[in-house]
């Protein structure tokens, strides 16, 4: 009976496969093809042009710096918030809901909201002026204030995308039976030891998912940076946008896209090997 119906599973996943093939794999192959082809023929000309660009090393540095600062901070904050959530007995769902509101806001809208706070005549400056801390409108997001601009982008990214890590970590913590922590407590582990020796190792699969998701998205960061810093803070995805729409050079834009993909894949492979949970260690 099973052999007679063996085509059914394939038929059921066929629409999804076709959809992915049409709208994901085909454009992907086209992009890769595009990145290797230029007026001089097939080759690495686009990549050479990308690497030779003034903004290239800056974009690489900025993107990696942003990822290296934002992702660990987000994971740390999410862990802290998730552990605090487990201590809340009443109204936990409400608190979780409030904390995840930024998830429902598009990244461009989030960038604009932070622009309203941080720009020359924004809420931050109004408050600082009201407190007598600054003499008048002060620019924080300019080329002359790279540190302030960077901090502003980090803040906006933390506000916008920590919640997705939180949701994954909260789900992971709920999967850990409370007896493990109780047993550790009985046998003498203090709260910090319990977190380090029990919660964190058992949370590894969730952390792996969260890290992959967040890191890949962090390498693609664009809208928030564009809204706050414009071209003052070049990042990889921003350069791809510039080459595509301003310079009208699709080949170099495609080279940037392929570079971002390669970096994302490398990061994913790294996480998969570092945070691997051996089957015999699974609960």
């Amino acid at each position: 009976m099973t052999s007679r119906a063996s085509w059914i599973p394939y038929a059921l996943i066929a629409p999804a496969v076709l959809f992915l093939a049409a709208f994901f794999i085909v454009p992907l192959v086209q992009t890769i093809w595009l990145s290797f082809s230029s007026e001089e023929g097939v080759g690495l000309a686009n990549y050479a042009r990308m690497a030779g660009d003034l903004n290239f090393s800056l974009a690489i540095r900025n993107t990696f710096l942003l990822t290296a600062i934002v992702v660990p901070l987000q994971v740390a904050l999410a862990l802290l918030m998730a552990v605090m959530l487990t201590k809340i007995e009443r109204g936990r769902d409400l608190v979780l809901w409030v904390l995840t509101i930024p998830l429902g806001i598009s990244d461009l809208a989030a960038g604009l909201a932070w622009l309203a706070i941080l720009q020359n005549t924004g809420y931050l400056n109004s408050a600082l002026y009201g407190l007598g801390l600054i003499p008048g409108p002060t620019g924080w997001l300019t080329q002359e204030t790279p540190v302030a601009l960077f901090i502003g982008i980090v803040l906006a990214e933390l506000w916008r995308a920590t919640a997705i890590v939180l949701v994954i970590v909260v789900a992971g913590i709920q999967l850990i039976p409370k007896e493990f922590a109780e047993a550790a407590e009985i046998f003498g582990a203090r709260p910090w030891t319990r977190f380090r020796k029990i919660t964190l190792p058992l949370l590894k699969p969730s952390l792996q998912s969260a890290l992959i998701l967040r890191t890949v998205l962090a390498f693609e960061v664009f809208a928030v940076v564009y809204a706050l810093g414009g071209t003052n803070f070049p990042v990889l995805a921003g350069e791809a946008y510039t080459w595509q729409n301003i310079n009208q050079n699709y080949g170099v834009a495609a080279a940037y896209a392929v570079l971002i993909m390669a970096i994302s894949l490398a990061a994913t492979a790294l996480y998969l090997s570092i945070l691997r949970v051996r089957p015999e260690q699974q609960p």
Binding site: P177, E179, F180, E182, A183, A184, E185, I186, F187, G188, A189, R190, I198, P201, L202, Q281, Q282, P283
Partner: peptide, 20 residues
């Protein structure tokens, strides 16, 4: 006192043996 300060040990119904 906290559990760890009571000088006792416990065996749980579902063992609570640490899987990792």
């Amino acid at each position: 006192l906290a559990p760890r300060e009571r000088g006792l040990a416990m065996v749980f119904q579902n063992y609570a043996v640490f899987p990792h």
